[in-house]
Simulated assay, not measured.
Amino acid sequence: MTTSINAFTTAKTWNWQNFPISYHTQGNNGPAVILVHGFGASSWHWRKNIPVLGANCRVYAIDLIGFGASAKPEPGKEITYTIETWGQQVADFCREVVGEPAFLVGNSIGCIVAMQAAVSNPDIALGVALLNCSLRLLHDRKRLTLPWTKRFGAPILQRLLSIKGVGNFFFRQLAQPKTVRKILLQAYADSEAVTEELVDILMKPAKDPGAAAVFLAFTAYSSGPLPEDLLPILPCPAIILWGTADPWEPIDLGRELANFPQVQKFIPLEGVGHCPQDEAPDLVNAILQDWING
């Protein structure tokens, strides 16, 4: 890892349901903030945000179970990988480690996790910031709105990947530096933000025992809550940031989430892709600081 990734404190471990959970923290004063990464990412995806936010806040970036340096127990036997599971993990972390209500900040599927944590545990959330929230377009309840190729193709692919040998082969092909870089270049509008460091951040946990099983379990997961299920019952205010160049979560669909009364602001980030906290950290950090201090 390069020096920039070690610019803040080393990883700490919290024991949750007898599984080790990795997290990073910085800052001793100010409100608490919990950062929740997206699918396949980790707390390191917030490396450009933690030092800045930690100057005036107590910042915590957590590795969801199954990702990063956290435990990767066997799906279906030791744990179920669902939005509800991760939401409870974040809520328990807030109570047991943070020790007070916090602002929750998520990216992609981490937005759904943050909202689920707040909805199921209203006492832990001061507010929620959603960065390019996953719209879960392959959800069972949304497939009818998709083009026929995706409507029928996705379930077929899911069934194929559920075959252990096929799934493991697919994961091995996917978890290659060239493939990861190619995917990142789709997700990021600014190709210069796709560095060797970023590729390494995503590659390292993929080599852990159990990583393939977690990945395949999530690709087969087409149920659970949608953002439009959670936003109307969110017990705290929310803001939404959205990169206009996101190829995976179209901003035109994202704007519809701003119609819920819990959403105080919808802020488009011009020319930014799916992971604005990493691609445009200066812009995102300033918005989050204003929101937290407001």
Results as ranks from 00 to 15, higher is better:
D92R: 06
Y81C: 12
I50V: 15
G127I: 13
T82P: 05
A61G: 10
I79R: 06
V52L: 05
D63A: 05
A118N: 08
W148N: 09
K164G: 15
R143P: 07
E78D: 15
T149P: 00
N56F: 05
T80G: 00
M115L: 13
Y60P: 06
I79P: 01
E96H: 13
V113W: 09
P155H: 03
V119L: 10
G30T: 09
T85C: 12
G27C: 06
G76C: 05
G153R: 01
L53W: 06
N132K: 02
W46G: 09
K72V: 03
P31N: 13
C133H: 05
S162Q: 14
R47G: 00
A91K: 02
V105I: 13
A91T: 01
R159G: 11
K164Q: 14
I109G: 03
G127C: 11
S42R: 02
G68C: 08
L160H: 01
I112F: 04
L130T: 00
V105G: 00
C94L: 04
I112E: 04
A154Y: 13
N107Y: 07
G27Y: 01
Q88V: 05
D140H: 10
Q88I: 07
A154M: 11
T80F: 08
L104D: 10
I62S: 08
T85E: 13
Q158E: 10
S43A: 15
G127R: 11
G167W: 02
I124D: 02
R47W: 09
G127E: 09
Y81G: 12
N107R: 08
V52M: 03
L135R: 06
G66S: 05
C111H: 07
N29I: 12
R47P: 00
K48P: 00
L144N: 11
K48N: 13
T149C: 03
R95P: 09
S70K: 07
Q116E: 15
P101Q: 08
K48W: 02
T145N: 10
G106I: 07
T80V: 10
L146V: 04
V166T: 10
C133G: 14
H45G: 11
N107C: 15
E84T: 13
K142G: 10
E78S: 14
F39T: 13
N28F: 01
A91P: 05
G167S: 02
K164S: 15
V52Q: 11
G87A: 07
I50C: 07
P75I: 00
W86V: 03
Y81D: 11
S70R: 11
K142P: 05
W148E: 10
L161C: 12
K142Q: 14
G153K: 00
Y60T: 03
F67Y: 15
T80Q: 10
S134N: 13
A69V: 00
E78N: 12
D63Q: 03
A102T: 09
R141G: 05
S108Y: 08
L144A: 12
F39I: 13
A117F: 10
Q88A: 13
P147L: 04
I112L: 15
K72C: 09
A125P: 06
N28A: 12
C57Q: 09
G54N: 06
H45T: 14
V90P: 07
V128R: 00
